[in-house]
């Protein structure tokens, strides 16, 4: 049998192509899917947050920004002045922007235009997780929607998918915009998406998120939504709460008392 140079190059090319597909084959055919699908801390949990804005507002008007500052410090969040490239984990939006479908002309004066704390909703059915092409965003077994910054390719599909504007992209290197870097938590780098992680690093150690701890008004209540006797469940069963954009079927884990 004679092998021409052309057919040799062709076969070589085909082999090379096959090599690049090998990891995909391994991952599809492998039996270790368990550590990729729906991983995370204790199963049977679903962490949630109840936000009581009535408790927050008096302090907020006095200028209290403790939760934002604590979050910013604990996670090395850069302070970027350019609104278009800002990194936001936890911030406020006026009622009609946070809840556009709830707004109407005759809304109570006590609500209209009032700031509401917004953050990643850690949806039970998160569209960002569904669209991520690398599983860099995934839902842990305890309900936290988490990001693996080592894996993110920066395609920003999750930003298009998130109906809550909770995701930010690092358009440039964030380090120059961090005033004081806390060595206990990594920064992010240019080219990846980031968002609130419900302080998974604290929750895993049995602590509550840093914003909840920092709040002097007790306006943020954190707990397990699957546990019928938890504080959050008691509040939810006793008082009327609203969610952001419930009509989209994402099932947020952040609830608002109004």
């Amino acid at each position: 049998m004679t092998t021409s140079r052309r057919s040799f190059i062709k076969a070589g090319g085909a082999c090379l192509l096959g090599l690049t597909l090998w990891p995909a084959v391994k991952s599809f055919a492998g039996n270790n899917a368990g550590n990729i699908e729906n991983p995370g801390a204790p199963a049977g949990k679903r962490w949630g947050l109840v936000i009581d804005m009535q408790k927050c507002w008096p302090k907020y008007q006095e200028g209290c920004r403790d939760c934002f500052l604590a979050c910013r410090k604990a996670h090395n969040i850069p302070d970027i002045a350019d609104k278009e490239e800002e990194i936001k984990w936890l911030w406020t939006e006026p009622f009609e922007n946070a809840f556009p479908e709830q707004e109407h002309e005759y809304i109570a004066a006590g609500i209209k235009g009032k700031p509401f704390i917004v953050l990643c909703n850690h949806c039970n059915n998160p569209p960002c997780v569904r669209v991520c092409p690398t599983k860099a965003t995934f839902k842990r077994r305890d309900g936290i929607v988490m990001m693996d910054y080592h894996r993110c390719i920066g395609c920003r599909y999750c930003m298009a998918a998130c109906p809550y504007g909770a995701r930010s992209f690092n358009f440039s290197d964030p380090r120059p915009y961090i005033k004081e870097i806390d060595p206990a938590y990594p920064t992010r780098e240019k080219g990846v998406v980031e968002k609130c992680n419900f302080c998974a690093e604290r929750v895993d150690l049995g602590l509550v998120p840093v914003c909840v701890e920092a709040c002097r008004a007790g306006a943020l209540i954190f707990g397990d939504l699957e546990e019928p006797n938890s504080v959050v469940r008691k509040i939810l069963s006793g008082r009327y709460t609203i969610l952001r954009k419930p009509e989209l079927g994402t099932h947020p884990s952040v609830f608002y008392l109004v």
Binding site: V131, T134, C152, I153, C155, Y157, F169, V192, V193
Partner: peptide, 18 residues
């Protein structure tokens, strides 16, 4: 993409839901 050097992650971690 923000991290072109990681583009092969789409093959290393194939995600049929995406």
């Amino acid at each position: 993409v923000g991290k072109p050097m990681r583009i092969l992650n789409m093959i290393f971690y194939p995600t049929p839901s995406s």
